[in-house]
Nucleic acid binder design. Sequence first.
DNA 1: TGCAATATGTAGCGGTCGCTACAATATGGG
DNA 2: CCCATATTGTAGCGACCGCTACATATTGCA
Lengths: 182, 182
Amino acid sequence: MTIRDDRRAAALALMADHLLAEGLAGASLRPLAKAAGISDRMLLYYFADKEEVLSLTLLTIAGRLQGDLAAVSSEPVSPRALAPVLWGVLQGPSMKPVMALWLELAAAAARGQEPFVRIGTQIGEGFLDWVEARLAVAPGVDRRATAALVLGVIDGLVMMGGVGQAALAERALALWDLPSGS
Amino acid sequence: MTIRDDRRAAALALMADHLLAEGLAGASLRPLAKAAGISDRMLLYYFADKEEVLSLTLLTIAGRLQGDLAAVSSEPVSPRALAPVLWGVLQGPSMKPVMALWLELAAAAARGQEPFVRIGTQIGEGFLDWVEARLAVAPGVDRRATAALVLGVIDGLVMMGGVGQAALAERALALWDLPSGS
DNA sequence: TGCAATATGTAGCGGTCGCTACAATATGGG
DNA sequence: CCCATATTGTAGCGACCGCTACATATTGCA
């Protein structure tokens, strides 16, 4: 079993790179297999079907993302201070393909397509947990909702950057000034 | 010419409905032609190629959206007050497929795919114009950037709703309290 | 060493994709 | 009425899609 598991993991790592580079549109079995250095025949020997390939590859990427995010300081700060931190992390060059894929994932999830709904929800909750853990809010304030607002504004600005308004998104972020109270 | 133009317009209207219902994934020539009530042969008689079909269909949808948005009161209000208004408009039942398509469009644009970059930018600017026209800000404040921030937070929360967190997005919006100054 | 289980290659299925060649029909102006 | 032009149908091209049947090779255990 271990040998098979190792090869599966190796294939997933290579396919994760491919998926990040090419997006969901490039997520056909033959190109994925080629990226993994195996034949498409073997890809469907290691994995049950395309949905399993896609799910596990996306979860591989989600795992990497979680690792990258976990490395960021977890000192609780105000929403005002945290949003630019999250923005900075997500704007890093290595994060560009990740966020592009995140947009595709969210779009497919909004259409109700599996496995994107399931995995999109999972990744979204990971983001929310990350924000919430770093958020200092006044007593009585809804922590989760505050985290959602911070994440929402950053996701929205990322999206805006994707449609050619990156500079404007930057200016908008500079105006971000949510009071930590109420 | 007029006859041909009329039929083109009729086809575009029907294809717009289809695209809204099925998303970009359903945007193949044969299904689109079927939705338009013509043969795929005729679709490519009326339009040059798939890109033209897609572009014009998306622009048809953008035109409808612009019309719907224009009908909303244009009394300038504070960012604090405007965000919930925009949210309310975009959460209307008839807007759900529009926003799902907008997400798909933004995702494709972020990948650099034409014609989505071009049309996505265009629609995004339409949104920004709409927000800016209804925004009352203190003197000296960057109007366009404020509009971008309002649009960003709403787009981000729409996205969050798409990945199964609609209730949380609602709670987050309740915390929205951007000062109109600075 | 023999044999079963595992692993891998080759080939192809039926389907959809964007697009086009070709022929037939309809239509409108001389 | 005749003919050029505009319109429409039929059929299919080559490519890719997810997936599988079948045969062969390799391996590990008795």
